[in-house]
């Protein structure tokens, strides 16, 4: 009897989202009760900020075309990790040498630690991510182009 009632509630698709959101809220509440969680201090890719660098807060640890040491999970799998981190395009190299305010725009230029992680050491993530975007756009443009 109770199973029939549960399946009756579930069979209405309007009810599924509130059910799931309620479940999430309960699990998050349990999470709050289980705090504090210990933070593991020996993290991968630790962040260092050098306030005096002209590239602050994304200092790359060396001039372009030199290799810096990166604390990755399996360094032996990425022998050239560290080159992308130090790379600057000629334009941003010029800006970095003339101004102290390049700041966070540096993230947009090719090269840097974020690019190193995204493209090189954790490249598989970045393969899946544009694929999700690709699939979502395929759905949207299929629906858009179809006759209503």
């Amino acid at each position: 009897m109770i199973i029939r009632r549960i399946s009756d509630v579930l069979s209405n698709y309007e009810n599924i989202l509130p059910l799931f959101a309620g479940g999430c809220a309960i699990v998050f509440l349990i999470g709050v009760l289980l705090l504090p969680l210990p933070y593991y201090d020996d993290q991968l890719y630790p962040k260092t900020i050098d306030r005096n660098s002209s590239l602050d807060p994304y200092d790359r640890g060396g001039p372009p075309f030199t290799q810096v040491v990166i604390k990755s999970q399996y360094p032996e799998n990425s022998p050239t990790a560290g080159y992308v981190t130090t790379y600057l395009t000629p334009f941003s190299w010029f800006l970095a040498n003339t101004t102290h305010h390049l700041g966070t725009t540096i993230v947009a230029h090719p090269g840097g630690i974020i690019d190193e992680i995204l493209y090189n050491t954790r490249g598989l993530d970045t393969v899946v991510e544009p694929t999700i975007l690709f699939i979502a756009f395929a759905i949207a443009s299929f629906l858009f182009r179809r006759e209503p």
């Binding site: 991968l44 630790p46 975007l133």
Partner: peptide
């Protein structure tokens, strides 16, 4: 709080935006 976190936020953000776009067309 590491460089890894910044690199993980980007895919997380993109997934949200992409699904939102598909859902709004639906």
């Amino acid at each position: 709080g590491t460089d890894l976190a910044e690199a993980l936020i980007l895919p997380g953000l993109v997934v949200g935006i992409a699904e939102l776009l598909a859902l709004s067309q639906i």
